[in-house]
Amino acid sequence: MKHHVGEHKAKKGLIRIEFDERDGRAEHVRITGDFFMHPEEAVHELEQKLEGHGIDELESLMDEFFAMRMDIEMPYVNIEDFKIALKNALKE
């Protein structure tokens, strides 16, 4: 098992993505940082969306999540910022 942590500083706030990689899958996915997202529950929902999936699927799952959630507001942060944090985690 390998623990991945990746950070990225968006225009407003730091985004940190961490998870354990087991047999090519992401477990215990955690998205933390000092960014803003309304409704706040969406962060947990995004974690759940990624949980248990193959690490090569995570980026497209993120795209899918945000494409479906038109209600989410993220001041000074965009989807690319989450994807960069993910890429940084996968580089580890």
Partner: peptide
């Protein structure tokens, strides 16, 4: 903050 990590932050 709501999303911060007690361990990291």
């Amino acid at each position: 903050g709501r999303f911060q990590s007690v361990v990291h932050d």
